[in-house]
Design a protein around this nucleic acid. Structure first.
Lengths: 225, 225
DNA sequence: ACCTGAACACCGTTCAAGT
DNA sequence: ACCTGAACACCGTTCAAGT
C-alpha cells in the first residue's frame, strides 16, 4: 500500500528546505530534527544524505553562491566589479545568515571557485600583474563581503529605524562623551535622503579608482582569447 | 569551616576564564557547564552574574575590544588609521573567535563606542566633512575587520601551509578549469617572501591614498581643541 | 548574597533494526 | 536503498532550595 518506489528525500530537497527554514527563522532554528519535521521525516534520516550538519551547511552556502549572477567576462573590469558586488549584496540581503559564513571561508565549493576564477581572469586580462590581480580581488572581496556582513547584522533595515537606533545607542552611553557620534547621527544619518548603500558605493568607487593605477602593468602569462 | 566570606565568582573572573576557554578550544567549546567546571562551580551559578549566555559573550567581546590600543589622537590621520588597524589585527589574531562576532556588530559596548568616537574625531579634525568622515570610518572598518574575519578563518597560518592548501584546493576541482587560480598559487602564493599581510598593507594604503582626496573639505562644526 | 540540584525541553550523532 | 527508534552524551535556562 505504502510502497514508495521513489525516495522522498534528496540532497537538493533537503538543502532547499534548510534554506527556507533559516531564511524564515534564523540560523539558530536550524536543527536536524526540526528540518526533518518540515520534510515529513525523522531528523536522523538526513544522515543518510549528509555525513553531518556541517556538510549540510556547506551545501547551503554553495547553493547561495550559485544565486550570485556573474557578469559577462568581456566588459570593462570596473563594471564587472560593480555588477558582481551589487549581486553579492542583493543575494546576501535575502540570505542574511549566509553573509558571515561565506566571508569566514568555510571551504570553497564549485560555485565559489568559479566565481573567483572569473574575477581573477578579468583582472589578468585587463593587464594586472599576478600580484596586483591578487591584491585586487582581495580588497574587492574583503570590502564587499565585509560590508554585507556588517549590513545584514544591523538590527534595523529602514532609514527611520536607523535613526532611532542611532539615538538610542548614543543616549545609552552618556551623550556628552560622544560628541562626534552625536554629530554623525544628527548631521548625517538623520538627514533625509540618507541611504546606507551610499556608504557602499563610496567605498567601492574609491577602491576601483585606486586600482586603476595598476591596470595594464602586464606580465600577463595566460593567453587572452 | 568552609565559610567563604567573599564570593569566589565575579563578572571579571568569569569573562577571563571564558576567554581563556575559547582561545584554547574554540567557540563551540564554550558551554555554561564547562565554563562553570573550570571555575570550580556549577554551570548554573553563572546565571547569578549574567542573565544569559549572550550577555556573557557580549562582555567577552567588549573586553577584547579593550585590548585594542588606540593611538594618540594628535598624530596624522593616516598614521592613526595604520596604527589602529595594525592593533585590531594583532589583537584579533590572538582571539580568532572574536573576529566575526565583532564585525557582525552585536551591540556596541563602552570600548567599542570610545574607539569609534576617537576615529571619527580624527577624521573630523583633519577637515573631513561629516559625510566623508562617516564614509571614511566605514571603509576603514569594513576593510580591517573584514580582512581579519577572512584571515583568522583560513585553515593555515604558516606560508608553507598556505601553499599546500592552495595546491589541494586546486587539485580538488579539476585543475584545468581554473587556470588563473593555478597561476595565482604558483606565481604568487608559492613565491618565497610571500606574506598574507602584504595583501592587507596594499589594501589599507590604497584606501588611505583614496581618502586623502577628501581631506580638508571642511564644514567642521565641532571645536578642535 | 551567592550557589546547588533537579528538572524541562531541547541538541548532534550513532547504530541496530525495520521495509 | 532508504528511513525509523532508541539511546548516548550533551546543551541553555528556570526555579526551588540550601547556606
Amino acid at each position: 500500500m505504502k510502497k514508495d518506489i521513489q525516495p522522498n528525500l534528496s540532497r537538493e530537497k533537503i538543502v532547499n528546505e534548510a534554506i527556507s527554514l533559516v531564511n524564515e527563522r534564523g540560523m539558530p532554528a536550524l536543527s536536524m530534527r526540526m528540518l526533518g519535521a518540515r520534510l515529513s521525516v525523522e531528523g536522523m534520516a538526513l544522515y543518510y544524505h549528509f555525513p553531518n550538519k556541517q556538510a549540510l551547511i556547506e551545501a547551503m552556502l554553495d547553493r547561495v553562491h550559485a544565486e550570485i549572477s556573474i557578469p559577462e567576462a568581456d566588459i570593462a573590469w570596473q563594471d564587472f566589479v560593480r555588477q558582481r558586488s551589487a549581486s553579492v549584496i542583493e543575494v546576501l540581503r535575502h540570505h542574511p545568515w549566509a553573509a558571515t559564513l561565506m566571508e569566514s571561508g568555510v571551504r570553497p565549493g564549485e560555485y565559489t571557485m568559479q566565481d573567483r576564477e572569473r574575477l581573477l581572469g578579468v583582472f589578468r586580462r585587463a593587464g594586472f600583474s599576478v600580484s596586483n590581480a591578487v591584491h585586487a580581488i582581495t580588497i574587492v572581496d574583503v570590502f564587499t563581503y565585509g560590508f554585507v556582513a556588517q549590513l545584514v547584522n544591523l538590527s534595523f533595515s529602514t532609514k527611520e529605524d536607523a535613526a532611532v537606533v542611532g539615538q538610542d545607542v548614543i543616549a545609552m552611553f552618556a551623550p556628552d562623551k560622544y560628541p562626534y557620534m552625536r554629530e554623525m547621527v544628527s548631521e548625517h544619518m538623520l538627514k533625509r535622503g540618507y541611504d546606507v548603500m551610499d556608504e557602499f558605493v563610496f567605498g567601492l568607487e574609491l577602491i576601483i579608482t585606486g586600482l586603476e593605477r595598476f591596470e595594464g602593468e602586464s606580465n600577463n602569462k595566460i593567453e587572452t582569447h
